[in-house]
Design a protein around this nucleic acid. Structure first.
Length: 256
DNA sequence: ATGCCTTGCGGAGCAAGA
């Protein structure tokens, strides 16, 4: 089973790129972030024509997440638990499909830091850690994938010095990501690839051409899923195409 | 030192992204 995550930066603007990638990569499950549409605006028919079932947790203009699956989507829940009612942003969607539970994550950016936005990011991460801890007790094949907006280590940043004070790299951000690993989750990409490897390149300043990237899109696996992990990688091709997203897909294969 | 680019919204020029 191939599970991929991709921040598409507007599903409407990216529809041609998304359709061609679904055809060529043919993931069983695709976790999409920043769809930037309400549920009714999601281009469901074109995607369903490729054999996907769809569930969305949309929002007007900003954020929004979706799960596409060639298998039945069951036990769907929208929003990250632990919301006291103040969090109105559509950033989390979860479902069980094809023998695997998947969580689709669009973690807050958090810049500028310090500030309100960074406080929101850290509070959101605390809620994520709490939910991730709870999910492990279910002892399932589980993949928490998405745009974490965290560079876990300096090797995940093209210029650690330039990003030292950025919300994506600050110690408090990395600490909370490490808490997820310490719970027992496995970073699928780092199981197979060492050294610099990126999933995002800024639209500005020729970042893609210069390979000035960041690794911020991750697939974290429960021990049960990690035991079935056979491959993982970054699919760079979509970033090099016409009208690309600034992120590119990250994928893994589970033998389930 | 700052902006560089892309998107949505709405019909100009911001806000937000990372």
């Amino acid at each position: 089973m191939k599970i991929a995550t991709w921040n598409v930066n507007s599903v409407k603007a990216r529809l041609p790129r998304l359709l061609e990638w679904l055809k060529e990569a043919s993931p069983d499950v695709a976790l999409l972030q920043e769809i930037k549409v309400v549920d009714d605006g999601f281009p469901a028919m074109e995607i369903a024509d490729l054999g996907y079932n769809i569930v969305t947790h949309g929002q007007k203009t900003y954020n929004g997440v979706a799960i596409l699956s060639k298998h039945r989507l069951e036990d769907v829940s929208m929003g990250l638990p632990g919301n006291d009612g103040s969090d109105v942003q559509a950033r989390y969607l979860e479902a069980f499909t094809g023998g695997v539970r998947v969580g689709c994550i669009y973690l807050p950016n958090g810049n500028p830091a310090p500030g309100e936005k960074y406080d929101y990011k850290l509070a959101w991460m605390d809620r994520l850690v709490a939910h991730a801890r709870e999910l492990l007790t279910w002892e399932e094949n589980l993949v928490l994938g998405g745009d974490y907006n965290i560079c876990p280590a300096d090797e995940d940043v093209w210029s650690p010095a330039a990003f030292a004070g950025d919300a994506l790299c600050l110690p408090q951000s990395r600490n909370r990501f490490r808490q997820l690993l310490n719970l027992g989750y496995t970073d699928a990409i780092r199981t197979f690839h060492q050294g610099p490897l990126y999933s995002y390149w800024d639209y500005q300043a020729g970042a893609w051409e210069k390979d000035h990237g960041l690794r911020i899109d991750h697939l974290l696996l429960s021990p049960q899923a990690a035991d079935r992990l056979t491959a993982a990688g970054v699919d760079r091709a979509p970033r090099g195409r016409e009208k690309p997203s600034d992120h590119t897909p990250v994928w893994c294969e589970l033998d389930v």
